[in-house]
């Protein structure tokens, strides 16, 4: 696997291919994922390779897809559902929160739902209305679900395999405009759900906690800050949004005493608030400055002509770093 360049998209396709090849119980269900290979082409070639019964073009009904996938999972299959865009998941929300998330609990462990929901999220692809959402909080507020959001192709492949091997339902988010990122080597086994530190320096001044695609903005901003001011930052890519990796968050804050949180979801009741709360519980006395959040605003994602102003940009992140460190 060394030396291979894969995009996020290719990494996902490779993971799906590998999982379909390894285990007959694996099925992929979704809209336009068969003959068409998916509207983002993430299942391209799989229909031809594995056939109609394993790569299933379903009727256009998200509750139907998720609900029947729950039944498939109850009876021994390993369904991977593609929801075409995150905002289209709402018709299936009841099936996810009222059934998938609770089945193990209400049957006292007798029946589990090993289900993976894979859905692209986020703005920046210049999509029409409701093609750009980032509403992880709805799902990260639901006991029984797990939510992962890889920032890069390497993690995407590993986390997708982890999600499938998980006996519980996992929602796997891939950021729409991460599709072109390149990496050199790729896992063939599962990746730990824990977050990863992307950059480390002993002379760090601030932490960044970010998720999914925001890693790119965070890393670019820290590079610029380092070049302009000589300040070093540690960037933590959370990868798993629920349950959160508290230990890494707390270890990091204990080293730096300052934190900036970057996510593209709306600010109010976003995961940033939960991270601040964790720091408050575990590391309050280490804080040297108030924790800042650079996030999407509390508005519906606006039309794409102005969506870049909704999103956290490198400059907004830079400004956040300056304010946090200069406090």
């Amino acid at each position: 696997m060394m030396g291979k360049n894969l995009t996020m998209l290719q990494a996902i396709t490779e993971a799906l291919d590998q999982m379909l090849g390894n285990d007959d119980r694996v099925m992929i269900l979704g809209e336009d994922i068969g003959v068409n290979g998916g509207v983002f082409r993430s299942t391209e070639g799989l229909y031809e390779k594995y056939g109609n019964d394993r790569v299933v073009d379903t009727p256009l009904a998200e509750s139907g897809i998720i609900g029947s996938a729950i039944g498939l999972a109850l009876n021994g299959m390993l369904p991977i559902v593609e929801i075409q865009f995150l905002a289209f998941i709402y018709p299936g929300f009841e099936q996810l929160v009222s059934h998938a998330a609770r089945m193990r609990y209400r049957t006292r462990g007798q029946f589990g739902v090993p289900l993976v929901i894979r859905t692209p999220y986020g703005a920046g692809i210049r999509g029409p209305e409701l093609h750009s959402e980032s509403v992880e909080t709805f799902f990260a507020h639901t006991p029984g679900l797990k939510v992962v959001a890889p920032s890069n192709p390497y993690d995407a492949k590993g986390l997708l395999i982890s999600a499938l091997e998980d006996p519980d339902p996992v929602i796997f988010w891939n950021r729409l405009n991460c599709i072109g990122l390149l990496r050199k080597k790729f896992p063939t086994k599962c990746t730990e759900y824990q977050s990863v530190k992307q950059k480390w320096s002993r002379r760090k001044r601030s932490d960044h906690f970010c998720m999914g695609a925001m890693l790119r903005e965070a890393l670019n901003a820290t590079k610029k800050i380092e070049a302009e001011k000589g300040w070093k930052c540690e960037v933590v890519d959370l990868r798993t949004l629920y349950p959160l990796d508290r230990d890494t968050i707390v270890q990091s804050i204990k080293k730096t005493g300052r934190a900036l949180i970057v996510h593209e979801a709306h600010k109010t009741a976003g995961l940033g608030a939960e991270i601040i709360s964790i720091i408050n519980d575990e590391a309050l006395i280490y804080l040297k400055a108030p924790i800042k959040r650079v996030t999407g605003f509390d508005v519906p994602v606006p039309p794409f002509t102005i969506e870049d102003h909704y999103l956290p940009t490198v400059d907004r992140v830079k400004q956040g770093i300056v304010e946090t460190i200069s406090f």
Binding site: A69, I70, L72, L74, M77, H99
Partner: peptide
């Protein structure tokens, strides 16, 4: 009802 579709499908 959908779960009964899924289990039967499996």
């Amino acid at each position: 009802m959908l779960h009964a579709v899924g289990t039967a499908w499996a």
